[in-house]
Design a protein around this nucleic acid. Structure first.
Length: 658
DNA sequence: ATAGGGTTAG
């Protein structure tokens, strides 16, 4: 268990506001150097003046005028071209970029490795990696800058395999990797679909790096941490991190993010504590705080979150938009939608992400109509929705069962906003229809999709089959899912659940054997509760936690009382073919019930109990919590993997629709 | 001349 020591924190935190604007990279190019190298000497005074004029137009951002002049300029200098290229990047204009490139070819300057590097970077920034590759292929004099540029371009475009092909060529040609090369190569390992072999590749590169004495290069080592993090290799990441002789904010943030993104929020908060208490050199910045807030949200650690909020204010990080959006989300995910709304109201600037945060916040609390209203407000404020806006809004409809509204939203995407639905949007639509028990229509959506349905879409369908116990359709979805995601244990478990509910025990056994044969494990159910700024976690089968002993005893007592008042244990959801009594015992051991009981024992009367769970709330826990909220006269807020349930006086805010 | 960590979703 980890405590954020409130007194210590305030003592160590700076009281003055130190803005740490590491966040926004300068959009303007650096001041040009005073002297420039020209490949061709300027022949007349006229051309030099022209060159100067073009450069000054570039600096002023008047690219159109600069290009007009360029057409009449026989002798542009290398530096003039450089500024033109940078200007194209700033204008995000591929067509201007192509014009400059064409002119450069006419001048015969395309073999200049300096300009080739710039061109590759330009095409990479303008999302045209094929053009970048063409420039590279035509460049005969390949300096390390040229190689690094193409590695970067390919890695950013997610084309890791090509990077390794070229990397081999570079090694043959006798050019040595430098510290920049290594960071790009490491990035290439995660920038690809076939990730298993690339993890091995990444480890090889790791060895290379150590052999070549780069273990003290902060950039490379941080990239290594990040690479292992993205592969989910938390231990490898922390090994690299621990051995780093020098660390800076980025290294710390990378490691904290690693924990936050790999379901280790405890460790993330612990490391953050270490960072601010034992390490005065690297102060957390906005990026650090975003990962920290996500960890608080993951734990539903409201009190922690409030301390973090205070820290953000004291550090003056509250003017940074992504920080504020994450803060809105954090409060909402900690069950405090009102505070999230207040934070949003007080922001003096908002972007599409801020609006998305608010829409999804209302969504996970079941306020679908309100989420749609905010969507409309956003549009009337002149902010254009992004594809994530639609995911958030569709998700809100799904949680609230607003089928018609959701369908209209989905149609409006293309009709009113000119956006084509992506895989995720189809998944939301399938989820919306499926939850509402319109399984046939959901299946029809999958059939009629204009793109090949991926695992998210089939997964949404399978999830709906689980809720409404549809064996046939579930088998159809699983046929695809087992091919698409052979390593996802969740799909097998869902199918087994469906079979169990249908009492098809032979099939349950078969699926379980399949799981074992593949050496996959069911994700164990786990719940958390924060009591007096401490977070306690419960596993469904938890013999070693003395606290759960007491909680379990209370549950046994409660369940007897509840039975007198009409509670029926929903033994049909138990995955094992056991006696009824045994099944009841299994049900009572569910982690969320333990957490609720622990909360009853350890909090004061009238205090709200806040719990979070890593999976979907099961039917039995749902009805037990409703009972308890009434008989213990407590407000209980449970966040499951998808949404919030507010229990009060025997009723849940989800209306039993979740 | 080039570099490393983060935002909203399900």
């Amino acid at each position: 268990m980890w405590v954020f020591p409130a007194s210590q924190t305030t003592a160590k935190l700076p009281t003055t506001v130190t803005a740490h604007f590491n966040y926004y990279p300068p959009r303007n190019s650096p001041e040009p150097p005073t002297s420039s190298t020209t490949l061709k000497p300027a022949s007349t005074k006229h051309t030099t003046d022209n060159n100067r004029l073009i450069r000054s137009l570039c600096r002023k951002g008047n690219l159109r005028q600069a290009l007009k002049l360029l057409a009449h300029e026989p002798n542009p200098a290398q530096h003039t071209y450089e500024l033109l290229i940078l200007s194209c990047i700033r204008h995000e204009s591929l067509s201007y970029g192509l014009q400059v490139h064409r002119h450069l070819l006419d001048d015969g300057l395309d073999q200049d490795p300096f300009l080739a590097t710039k061109l590759i970077n330009m095409y990479s920034e303008l999302d045209s990696v094929d053009d970048a590759r063409q420039v590279f292929d035509k460049t005969r004099e390949r300096t390390i800058y040229v190689w690094n540029a193409i590695f970067r371009a390919l890695a950013l475009a997610g084309n890791g395999v090509d990077v390794f092909d070229l990397y081999r060529q570079m090694n043959w040609s006798g050019i040595e990797s430098d510290r920049f090369t290594y960071t790009y190569i490491l990035k290439a390992c995660v920038a690809s679909e076939s990730s298993v072999s690339l993890l091995r590749k990444g480890k090889e590169i790791h060895a290379h790096i150590l052999r070549h004495g780069f273990e003290s290069c902060v950039h490379i080592m941080t990239t290594l941490v990040d690479m292992y993090a993205r592969f989910g290799c938390v231990r490898n990441a922390s090994c690299v991190f621990d051995e780093m002789p020098m660390k800076n904010v980025v290294s710390w943030s990378a490691m904290i993010t690693c924990y936050a993104k790999n379901e280790r929020p405890f460790e993330a908060l612990e490391l953050f504590q270490e960072m601010i208490l034992d390490n005065q050199d690297s102060l957390p910045n906005s990026v650090t705080m975003i990962s920290v807030m996500q960890s608080c949200a993951a734990l539903v650690a409201l009190e922690q979150g409030k301390l973090i909020h205070g820290y953000i204010l004291r550090r003056g990080l509250d003017s940074i938009l992504p920080v504020m959006s994450t803060l809105v989300t954090m409060y909402a995910r900690c069950g405090k939608l009102e505070i999230g709304q207040r934070v949003f109201d007080q922001m003096d600037k908002r972007d599409v992400v801020s609006w998305n945060s608010l829409i999804s916040s209302y969504g996970i609390h079941g306020y679908g109509k309100k989420a749609i209203q905010i969507f409309k407000d956003m549009i009337s404020h002149g902010v254009s929705p992004s594809h994530i806006t639609f995911i958030s809004a569709l998700g809100a409809c799904s949680h609230a069962g607003l089928v018609e509204e959701g369908k209209m939203l989905f149609d409006s995407m293309r009709r009113e906003h000119g956006m084509y639905p992506r895989m995720e949007h189809y998944a939301c639509l399938v989820d919306l229809l499926g939850r509402a028990n319109q399984l046939d229509e959901a299946a029809k959506v999958v059939e009629d999709m204009r793109i090949e349905p991926g695992p998210k879409v089939w997964g949404a369908l399978l999830g709906a089959c689980r809720i409404h116990c549809n064996v046939g359709l579930a088998e159809r979805a699983c046929k695809r899912l087992f091919k698409l995601e052979p390593g996802n244990a969740g799909n097998y478990v869902l199918l087994a659940d469906i079979y169990a509910e249908a009492k098809m025990w032979d099939e349950v056994k078969r699926v379980k054997q399949l799981l074992e044969a593949k050496k996959l494990q069911k994700v164990p159910g786990c719940s958390w509760i924060e009591v007096r700024k401490k977070v306690y976690s419960f596993m469904s089968v938890d013999e070693f936690n003395p606290q759960s002993e007491q909680a379990h005893a209370l549950l046994v007592k409660l369940s007897m009382e509840m039975k007198d008042r009409g509670y029926m244990p929903q033994t049909s959801i138990v995955l094992y073919d056991l006696e009824e009594k045994e099944k009841e015992r299994v049900l009572l051991g569910h982690s969320e019930k333990l957490a609720v009981a622990f909360g009853l024992i350890n909090t004061n009367n009238g205090e709200t109990i806040r719990i979070s769970k890593n999976l979907r709330l099961c039917e039995d826990c749902h009805s037990v919590t409703k009972f308890i909220s009434k008989f213990a006269n407590r407000e209980i807020v449970v966040r499951d993997v998808n949404r919030f349930h507010h229990f009060w006086d025997g009723v849940c805010s989800c209306g039993d629709y979740w």
